[in-house]
Design a protein around this nucleic acid. Sequence first.
RNA 1: GCCCGGGUGGUGAAAUUGGUAGACACAAGAGACUUAAAAUCUCUCGCCGCAAGGCAUACCGGUUCGAUUCCGGUCCCGGGCACCA
Length: 959
Amino acid sequence: MNKYDPNKIEAKWQKHWEKNKTFCVKEDSKKKKFYSLIEFPYPSGEGLHVGHPRPFTAMDVISRKRRMDGFNVLYPIGFDAFGLPTENHAIKTKQQPAVVTKKNIANFTRQLKLLGYSFDWDRVVDTTDPKYFKWTQWLFLQFYKHGLAYKKNQPINWCPKDKIGLANEEVVNGCCERCGTAVEQRNKEQWMLAITKYAEKLLQGLKEVDYITPARVSQENWIGKSEGALVNFALENSDEKLQVFTTRPDTLFGATFMAVSAELAKSWLDKGWKVSKEIEKYLEKTLSEQKVLDRVEKEKTGIATDKFAINPVNGKKIPVWITNYVLGGVGTGAIMAVPAHDERDFEFAKKFGLPITQVVAPYFYDSNNPPRSDKKTVKRINIQAVVKHWSEDKVIQIQWKEQPWKTFVIGGAEAGEKLEDAVKREVLEETGYKNIKSIKRVGMELRSEWFAAHKDENRYANMNVFEVELADGEKDELSAEESEKHVVAWVPYKDIPSFAGVGELAYIWKELNNKSGCFCEDGVAINSGEFSELKTAETKEKMIAWLEEKKIGKRQVNYKLRDWVFSRQRYWGEPIPLVYCEACAKNKRFESKGEEMNPGWIPVEEKSLPLELPKVDKYEPTDTGESPLAPMTDWVNTKCPRCGGKARRETDTMPNWAGSSWYFLRYTDPHNDKAFAGKDALKYWMSVDWYNGGMEHTVLHLLYSRFWNEFLFDLGLVPTSEPYKKRTSHGMILGPDGEKMSKSRGNVINPDEMIEKFGTDSFRTYIMFMGPFDQAVMWDTNGLVGVRRFLERVWFLQEKISDSPASANAISVLHRTIKKVGEDIDTMRYNTAVAALMQLTNDLMKEETIDKNTYKILIQLLSPFAPHLSEELWAEYGEKDLTFSAWPKFDPALAKSATFTLAVQINGKVRDTIEVDSEISEADVKELVLKSEKVQKWLEGKEPKKIIYIKGKLASVVI
RNA sequence: GCCCGGGUGGUGAAAUUGGUAGACACAAGAGACUUAAAAUCUCUCGCCGCAAGGCAUACCGGUUCGAUUCCGGUCCCGGGCACCA
């Protein structure tokens, strides 16, 4: 046997796969397809980062396993190569970005090939290749023609360092996502894509796909759908209305003031509203503060005005305030403030002494004693008292004798009785304590419903909770009647959450500790006229109906999602293929919706695509925010494709996200020059069966590419509305110090070095073994040593191969491993899959000899992780095409072992283990267990109460 | 603040319809082989204890014969969103 020499083996098989085009696929209607996708890398000058191989290897393992499962697998690769780092590097080194890109792609390709991935290298795409971006431009024109692209002058987020406009999504905490520089607001004409038109579709589409929860949730949050109502408030002494959007129309009765944004107030000023000097000053200050984009929560400020609004539901006059916490760009720029049920309004009302009116009561029903539909319901006013000890940190717990309840002091208020008096009376009656120091309300008035078994009726209570401090321990004897019903106990304050028997316990506990005084959840309407005692959902519906009937409001759906700023003022991106023609603007002869919306903007003719970038020496970004293409008059001045007259080109380029919004479609037919992809290819391969990528792309890239795909689906150009069936995400690989890898920290691991030292197979297997795939893991080169040892052992096992049949134990372990590895790969639990393979290998090492068949199955199971070593050994034993060999079949009968270790528990603790026959009967187990010396010892001659037998696992003796 | 994750040996981590906590690896220690080193192999390895046994899955309580797993509460860490009305 030769020594295991990974470098030699790996080079050999990589050449073999390349020469034979093993992983290049064609559409084959006879075979089921599987399309696995990774996010194509940005080919930076740094070369491959050790983070790349984690998702790449993971999906390679899946792809290789799917091939062995009989699927026709497409696993493509490409390069997302437009973008800032390359452009900046090119500027610095005085090269053409195209040249730099080419070099970087070559280096990435070399590195990726060293990793032995089963990519279809015939389908490589490069977003900067004119043959590719011809279709990116063509697709943009479809958006344009269908009226989904429009030009808009609006403040944009400008990064002064990168000299580039940013989409809202690219601004993080008021700073540039890429470089961290504080973002400024600038006015600029920008091309926009109307992604908001697809908000509902993008939201609904999430229901039919299998995305990991965080990915789905963050998309939902980003789309930010909220349903509610628009309500018009009449202004006193004016014909004007003040319109607000609210998601809580059910709280209308609780609106005690109006809050408007500074922007809205300013617009009133411009219309001639006369205000005091103070208000003028306040507006000026607030507006200038809001220009600075910082997302940190500010101290709430505000100023009262001379305006009053009329609350349409109760005719009450309520003041209009200008505030800084209502934003101009959100909703209508004004709100109705309901301080009892909105934290922000609450905070503001407290600060300025504005009235707070409760109109929603927290609602609870006791799930242990739910109201019964066959019993009558009695309405009552109730009180509960949390009675605190005069010197210790304890409260009274009433322990009921007839019911399993442990409650506070609880009772009813009699007709006309003041609630505080009821509290005093009940405390005296139920506990005997006489001297009360203070009584304070806890939380709000609430509603509670339960079945009162002792009275055989349902109770619907107007419940009021009080905190009662005793002055001292002086008390009366309890009446015989009371002491028969319950026991009075003092329990530690912190044990309150373990009380039982009241539905509202959690609410009381929260309010006791955090006296916010504001309730923002659903409940029951109170103090709301005809709507009182209705549940929140029902109140909303009825209120909207009422508003619509009275013509003072209507149902409204809002989305947080904003349209996509699609212009960039940089060189290294796809030119936007539009020209501006003044003559055509005047003629008003529009050939598409886009031209109607953007008069004078004429699409470049499709036959003249791609519109390439001019090759020039100087393409630095400008400080003015103008595109570097703008001064290139030779390129800019052109003929109008419509009228032949003078025209100039759009000088903005597309954002980085454009090319990556449809690359998965191009992979299905990458060389097509008649269409972005052929219908048959799309029909066969789409949609992507499994897409793995970084969490950082779950909002932007995922949303944008879904948007493009859904738009193309509506045009009938792609076969499915959702592009990805399944989406998963990998955790980050951290440096050996547990920090994010970065050059400045000096904790960067170079994959080339690792591969040279340990071999690709060890590297791949280690990356899969490191830890749970979806969690961040620390790099540890020592771990790589361990994996290399494992592969050495697999290699060494050849020595043990003989003609004698496999032992029963070996067969059993082998079959359990077949099951485990297959299942673990399918669910991305790679770390335990590798552990199982190690276990099997260790077990086989202990065998005298092993048979060839067992060894070959081990090789197959290992092959997705360590394909080179596996191919070499597979060939060694006279086989061909490991890639397409059938995945080993699990046989449950063979996986069974003859005996198992029975754990014997006594009162839940393991006291003994006995090796027993797998087919042992329950009766035999019980007999055997009782014979055990250890059990005898613990029993001390007594009879066990019972013996529980869990088949194949354990017996539990209860004493 | 809200929404997701997560908290288990010296380290990375295993363990799901509730059933032997620590699989698999790393590190460490002891030994074998060797002139020596590396490599390899064997053994030990949660904590306390000579042992019997006790204590251990962030913490407190509950349900259960039995809880890392289920329920209630508390604390801490990571990620995302953040005056969205």
